[in-house]
């Protein structure tokens, strides 16, 4: 682990404790956590040094993003870092404050309003970046009506603006789009899912080593070992998928890789969460035990910004509509 990652992990360990997570999830203020992490400079790691950043590439920042998932961070760290890099790469001003990113659900309503349903971290963001019927916009959350379509503790909300607010930033779309806002939303969720899944695997390994039934640790049973092996496979695949989408030039992820990463991480998230609960038994579904902090996020982030089916269809359309080249060519084009 490099120094950057180690230092951030220490900050998360001290400031983003599970007590803090529960406090913020319960409606408490996230301002203190936000200012702690902002003060450390990590929000600007992708920006050039003369802009107060660390000039990291997305690939170099990837371990930081995984950490945010591992610690179930209750503020949109990955989204804000990625959006800042992406805005900058598109020649836009980078505003202060937490940024959430709307997925393919964002649209204009018949009455001229703007709607962004089910935005991950929408409850604790200052801005929402999204594409609304072809227009790329940064919309201020304080001008939105928020509604929660989720259960206890969720930070996913529906945001609705009756008209374009005065403080909105309307962007000009580039001629060639590498990564639209919905794809950036998908890209940001991939390392969060991979990091949370990693934590869930670790917790499950610890639990099955400690929990004894029939006179021995349950991890000694072959059927439990097989389930843990499959979980590990999924967690490794999720990490690779997330690392692939973060391997991007100029802080703009590839739209294809965003689709690939979100499809694979979303599907695997369900397998990992289901197996973790099966192997934890009843303790795993209690409020008091921390597993739920991660598995709730796995399922929410899977649903946010397009599930595996949405992104698989997007990719399938992309592959079939190409007039030339083989399937292998397409795969190679994604990983060059």
């Amino acid at each position: 682990m490099d120094m950057f990652t180690e230092a951030l992990e220490r900050i998360f360990q001290e400031r983003a404790t599970t007590a803090v997570i529960r406090h913020i999830e319960g409606g408490g203020s996230s301002a203190e956590l936000w200012s702690d992490i902002t003060a450390s400079g990590y929000m600007d790691v992708l920006l050039p040094e003369n802009d107060g950043g660390a000039d990291l590439t997305l690939g170099e920042a990837f371990p930081l993003f995984m950490l945010a998932g591992k610690y179930a961070l209750p503020i949109p760290f990955v989204q804000t870092v990625m959006a800042r890099g992406w805005l900058r790469a598109h020649g836009q001003a980078v505003p202060q404050g937490a940024i959430a990113i709307a997925g393919p659900e964002a649209h204009c309503s018949d009455t001229g309003g703007l709607q962004a349903p089910g935005v991950a971290y929408g409850a604790v963001a200052d801005w929402v970046l999204g594409e609304f019927d072809d227009a790329w916009m940064m919309l201020p959350c304080d001008a939105a009506v928020k509604e929660k379509g989720e259960s206890r503790g969720s930070q996913m909300v529906d945001l609705c603006w009756t008209s374009i607010p005065k403080t909105a930033m309307v962007m000009e779309k580039p001629e060639v789009v590498t990564c639209a806002p919905a794809q950036l939303a998908a890209a940001a969720l991939a390392p969060l899912l991979a990091g949370a899944a990693r934590q869930v695997l670790d917790m499950t390994l610890t639990h099955t080593a400690q929990r004894k039934q029939f006179g021995r640790a349950i991890m000694q049973f072959q059927s439990v070992q097989a389930q843990l092996s499959v979980m590990a496979e999924r967690v490794w695949a999720m990490r690779m998928a997330a690392q692939l989408v973060c391997n991007a030039a100029n802080n703009v992820p590839s739209g294809r890789l965003a689709a690939i990463a979100k499809a694979r991480c979303s599907e695997a998230a369900v397998t990992v969460a289901d197996s973790a609960h099966a192997l934890h038994g009843a303790i795993g579904i209690t409020e008091e035990y921390d597993l739920q902090l991660y598995t709730r996020r796995l399922r929410e982030w899977r649903r946010a910004s397009g599930t595996e089916t949405w992104w698989a269809c997007y990719l399938g359309q992309d592959v079939i509509s190409e007039t030339r080249g083989t399937a292998l060519d397409y795969i190679l084009s994604c990983t060059k």
């Binding site: 690939i260 990719l315 399938g316 592959v319 795969i331 990983t335």
Partner: peptide
């Protein structure tokens, strides 16, 4: 579309 996307995305990740 869904089947093709699932196949291509799995193959891409596993190839890596």
């Amino acid at each position: 579309l869904e089947a093709m996307g699932n196949i291509i995305s799995w193959l891409t990740v596993l190839r890596s």
